[in-house]
Nucleic acid binder design. Sequence first.
RNA 1: GCGCCCGUAGCUCAGCGGAUAGAGCAGCGGACUUCUAAUCCGCCGGUCGCAGGUUCGAUCCCUGCCGGGCGCGCCA
Length: 553
Amino acid sequence: MTPADLADAVLAAVRAAVDSGDLDVAVPGDVKVERPKNREHGDYATSLPLQLAKPARRPPREVAETIAKPLRETPGVASVDIAGPGFLNITLEPGAQGELARTVVAADEDYGRTSTMAGQRINLEFVSANPTGPVHIGAVRWAAVGDALARVLTASGAEVTREYYFNDAGSQIDRFGRSLMAAAQDKPTPEDGYAGAYIDDIAKQIVASRPDIFDRGDEAAQQQFRAAGVDLMFAEIRDSLADFGVTFDVYFNEKELHEKGELDAALERLRSHGHVFEEDGAVWLRTTTFGDDRDRVLVRTGGEPTYFLADCAYYLDKRERGFDRCIYLLGADHHGYVGRLRAVAACFGDDPDRTLEVLIGQLVNLVRDGEPVRMSKRAGDYVALVDMVDAIGADAARYALARYSSDSPIDLDLDLWTRHTNDNPVYYVQYAHARVASLLRNASELAIPLGDPDAFRPELLGHDREGDLLGALGEFPRVVATAAELREPHRVARYLEELAGTYHRFYDVCRVLPRGDEETTDLHRARLWLVEATRVVLRNGLALLGVSAPERM
RNA sequence: GCGCCCGUAGCUCAGCGGAUAGAGCAGCGGACUUCUAAUCCGCCGGUCGCAGGUUCGAUCCCUGCCGGGCGCGCCA
């Protein structure tokens, strides 16, 4: 019996109580059934009676009794106690609890998948770093978290498109092109230009592949530096992200918006909705109508469109591609965008609460030898994605970035995440998986197969540590669904750390394989099912974070 | 000044209104002839920033204050 099954049983009990006239209340849509910290409070507990007491106009403990009565009749439920002010403490039959191992093994890669978000078409835009330099650490947080988020959303039934908005138009690209040309000519970096070793590298590559680049004058040369530079930079960005395990379904070019006339189309659309006005020779969008703190310029006095107008066109483009929800993952230094983006959606006639979501990730600082590592794309002495992967490996980097709530700023100590010790949570989890894998290898060498599922005797898994492990395994689908719903993939990492600990503690006291010439008993086999189920969940969970599940360490 | 985020054990952080607030690290003390000790067990450690409010019940929701981070361009 899974927690979801039990939740259904509780709701069925409420319905039964209502049908029999014992209770007069609207049956809730879902119910929270949780594992109590204290084992004396049963295998599962719910505070539903406390919540129903007021609408039912009855004392909580009375409500609890009316629900408990039919719930006790549920197959697999051993006992239901009423505790405290009106909690229901539920104890399962040993077999019903152990049954979960079979469920998990049977579901295998699908264990953890739910349909809580079925039918939702989500556009998830993240990283979107400008192609004027390598991906820096701030964007890497979202590469790790965004990709994990995409995975938990998908696991919950949503249809997700990972998208990278590629700003290949605008003045920063001009500055990039000028910087490359200056580097190629050994001239100093232009004012507001980009500097750093990568500029020299790219400039050299371009000159090497086009020795005649300066033949048709500076203007033509700069065009080429710009175009070729963006291509090379973009290829580098895409490769470094791929090495990090992150690939996008759509790389969207800003240039395309300009070339297809989507900026004008968006402007007309906004005008038709009556939110556009002219002032001081510029064209503005009245975003303050929808809560932005100031109105925004769409077209400058000189007739040049702003980056903001491209943002409007891009949003419209996403909506016209059929996404019901556009999620933007931005760094804290861009949180000022939230108000205007929401206003954009509203100006197009959308309800921003429904169609748009902006998630803000606080800043990441890298620390090395106790000293903060400076990051600046301009100065060129920043730590890039590739540096971080070189320093601590893709697994540790992804895990380190994904295990914290995006709401809190983090200092990542490169030394710590390099260590192969217990301080390093990714090793703790991966080690648990390697230990499981090793045990299963030994089982197979001893020719002890899991055997026929019908021969599995779940009621033998009655040890406290087995119960703890089964309970933890049962939580997984709900953890994933919650991570998706709240857009908080770090919950998966924290869960895995707990599961790993629960497994280590089980392993410590519950011998799984027969020793020496011991007979293989049904208990050995039952525990093997439990271990196999643990393997499935650790592997599936790590996969959601994009972290490998090693067979050996 | 306005806006967003944060404030929980010595440190780094979990905890989407429930029972006695948790984990890792650090500190102290234990467990390896036994399936991977990259592990496990015990001890030590808290006015959940402060003050009000809502609630049967608040670390969680609301208001104000204090402290810290970030942001407030016809830049991108």
